[in-house]
Design a protein around this nucleic acid. Structure first.
Length: 279
DNA sequence: GTCGATGTTAGCAC
DNA sequence: TGTGCTAACATCGA
Protein backbone atom coordinates (compact mmCIF):
# COMPACT_ATOMS: atom_id res chain seq x y z
CA UNK A 1 0.00 0.00 0.00
CA UNK A 2 2.68 2.37 -1.00
CA UNK A 3 2.04 5.93 0.02
CA UNK A 4 4.73 8.20 1.39
CA UNK A 5 5.35 6.36 4.69
CA UNK A 6 5.62 2.99 2.95
CA UNK A 7 8.00 4.32 0.33
CA UNK A 8 10.10 5.90 3.06
CA UNK A 9 10.20 2.50 4.75
CA UNK A 10 11.20 0.83 1.45
CA UNK A 11 13.89 3.47 1.00
CA UNK A 12 15.46 2.63 4.34
CA UNK A 13 15.14 -1.09 3.56
CA UNK A 14 16.96 -0.66 0.26
CA UNK A 15 19.65 1.40 1.96
CA UNK A 16 20.05 -1.30 4.59
CA UNK A 17 20.38 -4.15 2.12
CA UNK A 18 21.43 -3.19 -1.37
CA UNK A 19 24.05 -0.41 -1.41
CA UNK A 20 27.60 -0.77 -2.78
CA UNK A 21 27.17 -4.17 -4.41
CA UNK A 22 27.88 -4.45 -8.14
CA UNK A 23 24.77 -5.34 -10.13
CA UNK A 24 25.12 -8.20 -12.58
CA UNK A 25 21.77 -7.93 -14.35
CA UNK A 26 18.14 -6.98 -14.22
CA UNK A 27 15.59 -9.71 -14.78
CA UNK A 28 12.23 -8.37 -15.96
CA UNK A 29 9.21 -10.62 -15.93
CA UNK A 30 6.72 -7.94 -16.91
CA UNK A 31 8.03 -5.42 -19.41
CA UNK A 32 5.03 -3.20 -18.81
CA UNK A 33 6.80 -1.99 -15.66
CA UNK A 34 9.65 -0.39 -17.57
CA UNK A 35 9.71 3.29 -18.48
CA UNK A 36 13.22 2.95 -19.89
CA UNK A 37 14.11 0.50 -22.65
CA UNK A 38 15.31 -2.83 -21.21
CA UNK A 39 18.55 -2.95 -23.19
CA UNK A 40 19.43 0.58 -22.16
CA UNK A 41 18.65 -0.25 -18.54
CA UNK A 42 20.83 -3.38 -18.66
CA UNK A 43 23.75 -1.38 -20.02
CA UNK A 44 23.32 1.24 -17.32
CA UNK A 45 23.06 -1.30 -14.52
CA UNK A 46 25.66 -3.95 -15.37
CA UNK A 47 28.64 -3.49 -13.06
CA UNK A 48 27.04 -0.38 -11.59
CA UNK A 49 26.31 0.11 -7.88
CA UNK A 50 23.60 1.73 -5.79
CA UNK A 51 25.28 4.45 -3.74
CA UNK A 52 22.37 6.10 -1.94
CA UNK A 53 18.71 7.01 -2.15
CA UNK A 54 16.30 9.93 -2.35
CA UNK A 55 12.55 10.09 -2.23
CA UNK A 56 10.02 12.49 -3.73
CA UNK A 57 6.57 11.67 -2.50
CA UNK A 58 5.87 8.08 -3.49
CA UNK A 59 8.84 7.88 -5.87
CA UNK A 60 12.05 6.19 -4.75
CA UNK A 61 15.22 7.27 -6.51
CA UNK A 62 18.35 5.17 -6.24
CA UNK A 63 21.61 6.96 -6.98
CA UNK A 64 23.95 5.11 -9.29
CA UNK A 65 27.74 5.13 -8.99
CA UNK A 66 28.22 5.90 -12.68
CA UNK A 67 25.65 8.71 -12.69
CA UNK A 68 21.92 9.18 -12.92
CA UNK A 69 19.23 7.58 -10.81
CA UNK A 70 17.20 4.41 -10.96
CA UNK A 71 13.56 5.34 -10.36
CA UNK A 72 11.13 3.02 -8.64
CA UNK A 73 7.44 3.72 -8.32
CA UNK A 74 5.29 1.19 -6.52
CA UNK A 75 1.81 1.74 -7.90
CA UNK A 76 -0.85 0.32 -5.64
CA UNK A 77 0.75 -2.95 -4.66
CA UNK A 78 4.51 -2.55 -4.98
CA UNK A 79 7.09 -3.74 -2.44
CA UNK A 80 10.75 -4.75 -2.22
CA UNK A 81 12.27 -8.02 -1.06
CA UNK A 82 15.97 -8.80 -0.60
CA UNK A 83 16.80 -12.49 -0.73
CA UNK A 84 19.36 -15.05 -1.82
CA UNK A 85 17.84 -18.50 -2.27
CA UNK A 86 15.36 -19.06 -5.09
CA UNK A 87 12.93 -20.62 -2.64
CA UNK A 88 12.78 -17.26 -0.89
CA UNK A 89 11.79 -15.39 -4.02
CA UNK A 90 8.71 -13.41 -2.97
CA UNK A 91 5.30 -14.09 -4.43
CA UNK A 92 4.34 -11.62 -7.20
CA UNK A 93 7.96 -10.75 -7.95
CA UNK A 94 7.88 -8.96 -11.34
CA UNK A 95 11.52 -7.90 -11.70
CA UNK A 96 14.78 -8.81 -9.96
CA UNK A 97 18.06 -6.95 -9.56
CA UNK A 98 20.78 -9.61 -9.43
CA UNK A 99 23.90 -8.63 -7.51
CA UNK A 100 27.28 -10.20 -8.15
CA UNK A 101 27.47 -11.38 -4.55
CA UNK A 102 24.56 -13.75 -5.18
CA UNK A 103 21.89 -11.69 -3.44
CA UNK A 104 18.84 -10.35 -5.22
CA UNK A 105 16.47 -7.44 -4.81
CA UNK A 106 12.94 -8.25 -5.94
CA UNK A 107 10.46 -5.69 -7.20
CA UNK A 108 7.16 -7.15 -6.06
CA UNK A 109 3.92 -5.86 -7.56
CA UNK A 110 0.82 -8.00 -7.87
CA UNK A 111 -1.17 -5.46 -9.89
CA UNK A 112 1.67 -4.31 -12.11
CA UNK A 113 0.92 -0.61 -11.76
CA UNK A 114 4.50 0.10 -10.69
CA UNK A 115 7.30 1.59 -12.74
CA UNK A 116 11.04 1.03 -13.10
CA UNK A 117 13.18 3.42 -15.09
CA UNK A 118 16.19 5.71 -15.28
CA UNK A 119 16.49 9.49 -15.03
CA UNK A 120 19.36 11.89 -15.35
CA UNK A 121 18.95 13.35 -11.88
CA UNK A 122 16.50 13.76 -9.04
CA UNK A 123 15.62 17.27 -10.19
CA UNK A 124 15.19 16.25 -13.81
CA UNK A 125 12.80 13.53 -12.69
CA UNK A 126 10.88 15.92 -10.46
CA UNK A 127 10.31 18.25 -13.39
CA UNK A 128 9.52 15.49 -15.82
CA UNK A 129 6.86 14.08 -13.52
CA UNK A 130 5.68 17.51 -12.33
CA UNK A 131 5.98 16.59 -8.69
CA UNK A 132 5.28 19.24 -6.09
CA UNK A 133 7.14 19.63 -2.80
CA UNK A 134 7.35 16.42 -0.77
CA UNK A 135 4.47 16.26 1.70
CA UNK A 136 6.93 15.98 4.59
CA UNK A 137 8.85 19.10 3.58
CA UNK A 138 6.11 21.41 2.35
CA UNK A 139 5.71 24.60 4.40
CA UNK A 140 2.40 26.04 5.47
CA UNK A 141 2.88 28.94 3.07
CA UNK A 142 3.65 26.63 0.14
CA UNK A 143 0.63 24.51 0.95
CA UNK A 144 -1.58 27.57 1.18
CA UNK A 145 -0.34 28.88 -2.15
CA UNK A 146 -0.80 25.50 -3.83
CA UNK A 147 -4.41 24.97 -2.76
CA UNK A 148 -5.53 28.60 -2.53
CA UNK A 149 -6.54 28.88 -6.16
CA UNK A 150 -8.24 25.52 -6.51
CA UNK A 151 -11.95 25.39 -6.02
CA UNK A 152 -12.21 21.63 -6.38
CA UNK A 153 -12.95 19.66 -3.21
CA UNK A 154 -10.05 19.56 -0.78
CA UNK A 155 -9.52 15.83 -1.08
CA UNK A 156 -8.74 15.49 -4.80
CA UNK A 157 -6.60 18.63 -4.64
CA UNK A 158 -4.47 17.15 -1.86
CA UNK A 159 -4.17 13.90 -3.83
CA UNK A 160 -2.76 15.84 -6.81
CA UNK A 161 0.94 15.00 -6.77
CA UNK A 162 1.84 18.34 -8.35
CA UNK A 163 0.35 20.15 -5.35
CA UNK A 164 2.31 18.13 -2.83
CA UNK A 165 3.89 14.76 -3.50
CA UNK A 166 3.25 11.70 -1.40
CA UNK A 167 -0.34 11.95 -0.18
CA UNK A 168 -2.51 8.95 -0.99
CA UNK A 169 -6.06 7.93 -0.31
CA UNK A 170 -5.86 6.82 3.31
CA UNK A 171 -3.47 9.59 4.32
CA UNK A 172 -5.69 12.31 2.96
CA UNK A 173 -8.68 10.93 4.87
CA UNK A 174 -6.61 10.68 8.03
CA UNK A 175 -5.20 14.20 7.65
CA UNK A 176 -8.62 15.71 7.01
CA UNK A 177 -10.05 13.88 9.99
CA UNK A 178 -7.25 15.06 12.29
CA UNK A 179 -7.69 18.60 10.98
CA UNK A 180 -11.49 18.35 11.31
CA UNK A 181 -12.07 19.35 7.70
CA UNK A 182 -14.67 17.85 5.37
CA UNK A 183 -13.17 16.37 2.17
CA UNK A 184 -15.66 18.28 0.01
CA UNK A 185 -14.74 21.70 1.32
CA UNK A 186 -13.57 23.75 -1.67
CA UNK A 187 -9.78 23.86 -1.36
CA UNK A 188 -9.69 27.63 -1.70
CA UNK A 189 -12.23 28.18 1.10
CA UNK A 190 -9.93 27.47 4.04
CA UNK A 191 -9.33 30.14 6.64
CA UNK A 192 -5.81 30.79 7.90
CA UNK A 193 -6.61 28.81 11.06
CA UNK A 194 -7.87 25.85 9.03
CA UNK A 195 -4.81 25.93 6.80
CA UNK A 196 -2.62 25.82 9.89
CA UNK A 197 -4.59 22.84 11.21
CA UNK A 198 -4.29 21.08 7.87
CA UNK A 199 -0.54 21.59 7.71
CA UNK A 200 -0.08 20.45 11.29
CA UNK A 201 -2.22 17.34 10.74
CA UNK A 202 -0.28 16.47 7.59
CA UNK A 203 3.02 16.44 9.46
CA UNK A 204 1.54 14.60 12.41
CA UNK A 205 0.02 11.81 10.30
CA UNK A 206 3.11 11.32 8.14
CA UNK A 207 5.56 11.35 11.04
CA UNK A 208 3.43 8.92 13.02
CA UNK A 209 3.07 6.58 10.05
CA UNK A 210 6.80 6.60 9.35
CA UNK A 211 7.67 6.02 12.98
CA UNK A 212 5.43 2.92 12.91
CA UNK A 213 6.98 1.86 9.59
CA UNK A 214 3.56 2.15 7.99
CA UNK A 215 2.17 -0.81 9.96
CA UNK A 216 -1.38 0.40 10.33
CA UNK A 217 -2.42 -1.67 13.27
CA UNK A 218 0.30 -0.01 15.34
CA UNK A 219 -1.12 3.44 14.73
CA UNK A 220 -2.64 5.34 17.67
CA UNK A 221 -6.24 4.66 18.58
CA UNK A 222 -7.01 8.29 17.77
CA UNK A 223 -6.54 7.50 14.07
CA UNK A 224 -9.43 7.09 11.67
CA UNK A 225 -7.57 4.47 9.66
CA UNK A 226 -8.88 1.70 11.89
CA UNK A 227 -12.28 2.18 10.27
CA UNK A 228 -11.02 1.08 6.84
CA UNK A 229 -11.84 -2.43 5.74
CA UNK A 230 -8.31 -3.36 4.88
CA UNK A 231 -6.90 -2.51 8.25
CA UNK A 232 -6.02 -6.02 9.42
CA UNK A 233 -6.46 -5.37 13.08
CA UNK A 234 -9.17 -7.45 14.70
CA UNK A 235 -12.61 -5.92 14.53
CA UNK A 236 -15.31 -6.16 17.17
CA UNK A 237 -17.51 -9.24 17.09
CA UNK A 238 -18.84 -10.12 13.72
CA UNK A 239 -19.81 -6.61 12.78
CA UNK A 240 -19.19 -6.23 9.09
CA UNK A 241 -17.83 -2.83 9.85
CA UNK A 242 -18.46 0.82 10.40
CA UNK A 243 -16.38 1.68 13.38
CA UNK A 244 -17.02 4.74 15.43
CA UNK A 245 -15.17 8.00 15.61
CA UNK A 246 -12.30 7.69 18.09
CA UNK A 247 -13.12 11.21 19.28
CA UNK A 248 -16.90 11.44 19.56
CA UNK A 249 -18.09 7.85 18.92
CA UNK A 250 -20.32 8.87 16.03
CA UNK A 251 -20.54 6.19 13.38
CA UNK A 252 -17.99 6.74 10.62
CA UNK A 253 -19.53 7.45 7.22
CA UNK A 254 -18.23 5.92 4.00
CA UNK A 255 -18.77 8.01 0.87
CA UNK A 256 -17.21 8.71 -2.51
CA UNK A 257 -15.27 11.93 -3.13
CA UNK A 258 -13.34 12.50 -6.33
CA UNK A 259 -14.17 8.96 -7.32
CA UNK A 260 -12.38 7.50 -4.30
CA UNK A 261 -13.60 5.69 -1.21
CA UNK A 262 -13.67 8.25 1.59
CA UNK A 263 -14.23 7.91 5.32
CA UNK A 264 -15.42 10.81 7.44
CA UNK A 265 -16.82 11.53 10.86
CA UNK A 266 -20.04 13.44 10.11
CA UNK A 267 -19.85 15.27 13.44
CA UNK A 268 -16.15 16.20 13.60
CA UNK A 269 -15.93 17.05 9.91
CA UNK A 270 -19.08 19.07 9.15
CA UNK A 271 -20.24 18.83 5.56
CA UNK A 272 -20.11 22.21 3.80
CA UNK A 273 -23.35 21.53 1.91
CA UNK A 274 -25.50 20.66 4.91
CA UNK A 275 -23.93 23.54 6.86
CA UNK A 276 -25.18 25.88 4.17
CA UNK A 277 -28.69 24.52 4.52
CA UNK A 278 -28.73 25.20 8.22
CA UNK A 279 -27.70 28.82 7.95
C1' DG B 1 -18.94 -15.48 -10.31
C1' DT B 2 -18.89 -10.39 -8.40
C1' DC B 3 -16.97 -6.45 -6.34
C1' DG B 4 -13.64 -3.21 -4.70
C1' DA B 5 -8.92 -1.84 -3.99
C1' DT B 6 -3.83 1.70 -1.55
C1' DG B 7 -2.02 5.07 -7.72
C1' DT B 8 -1.93 7.35 -12.04
C1' DT B 9 -3.40 9.20 -16.32
C1' DA B 10 -5.87 9.46 -20.97
C1' DG B 11 -9.84 11.26 -22.73
C1' DC B 12 -13.50 14.18 -22.55
C1' DA B 13 -16.61 18.20 -21.37
C1' DC B 14 -16.75 22.65 -20.05
C1' DT C 1 -5.09 26.66 -21.68
C1' DG C 2 -6.81 25.09 -17.38
C1' DT C 3 -9.79 22.45 -14.52
C1' DG C 4 -12.22 18.64 -13.05
C1' DC C 5 -14.64 14.29 -13.63
C1' DT C 6 -14.70 9.41 -15.07
C1' DA C 7 -13.04 5.30 -16.62
C1' DA C 8 -9.40 2.34 -17.43
C1' DC C 9 -5.21 -0.01 -16.44
C1' DA C 10 -4.12 -5.83 -14.43
C1' DT C 11 -4.71 -8.50 -10.74
C1' DC C 12 -5.87 -10.38 -6.36
C1' DG C 13 -8.65 -11.67 -2.64
C1' DA C 14 -12.80 -11.23 0.19
Amino acid sequence: MPELPEVETYRLYLEGTSLHQPVESLEVERKKLLTTDLDALQTILKGNEFTGTSRIGKHLLVHLKRGGVLVLHFGMTGDLGYYREEEDRPRFTRAVFHFRNGYKLAFIDSRIFGQIGWAESVEAYRQQRKLGPDALDITKAELGAAIGKRKAPLKPVLLDQSVTAGIGNWIVDEVLFQARLHPERPASSLTETELAALHKALRHVLKTAISKEAVYRHFPKSFLIHAREWDNSPHPEGSSHHLNCPRCQTEILKMVVGGRATYVCPLCQPNPNSARLES
